[in-house]
Structure formats: C-alpha cells, structure tokens
C-alpha cells in the first residue's frame, strides 16, 4: 500500500518536473523569439541610420 503511495508520488513529481521543463522550454523559446525580433529591428534601423548619415554628409556638397 505504502509502496503504491510512494510510487504514485514519484510518478506525480516526475510528471510535474516534465511539465515544468516543457513550460520553461516554451517560455525560453518565446523569450528568444522576442529577443531575435528586436535584434533584427534594431539592426535594420542601424543600417538605415548609417546610410542616412552618408546621405546627410553628401548634402554638404550640394
């Protein structure tokens, strides 16, 4: 009886751990996706800024 109880507790805790692992995995994936999206946006802006800075400098020659 107690054996069954402990086995059930162990299985419950194992499934809990697995669930937590999956939860964390999903959360980290979401975080990484957000991070990546921000990185691409910021890189795009920086690239555009660099080209505009060149254009601005060219205005001096007009």
């Amino acid at each position: 009886m107690t054996f069954a109880f402990f086995v059930s507790i162990i299985t419950i805790s194992c499934t809990d751990k697995k669930k937590e692992e999956e939860k964390t995995k999903a959360a980290v994936e979401k975080i990484e996706a957000a991070e990546k999206e921000m990185e691409t946006i910021s890189n795009e802006i920086e690239e555009k800024t660099n080209t505009i800075e060149k254009e601005i400098n060219e205005l001096d020659n007009l």
Binding site: K17, E20, E21, E22, K23, T24, K25, A27, V28, I31
Partner: peptide, 15 residues
C-alpha cells in the same frame, strides 16, 4: 535541456 537544473537553478529560476 530547458528546465533541468542549471547549476543551482531550477527550471523556473533559469527561465
């Protein structure tokens, strides 16, 4: 492996 102990961190703490 996400959620497994990362050093002394649990899955939630790591997240």
């Amino acid at each position: 492996a996400y959620g497994k102990n990362k050093g002394d961190l649990t899955g939630r703490e790591f997240g």
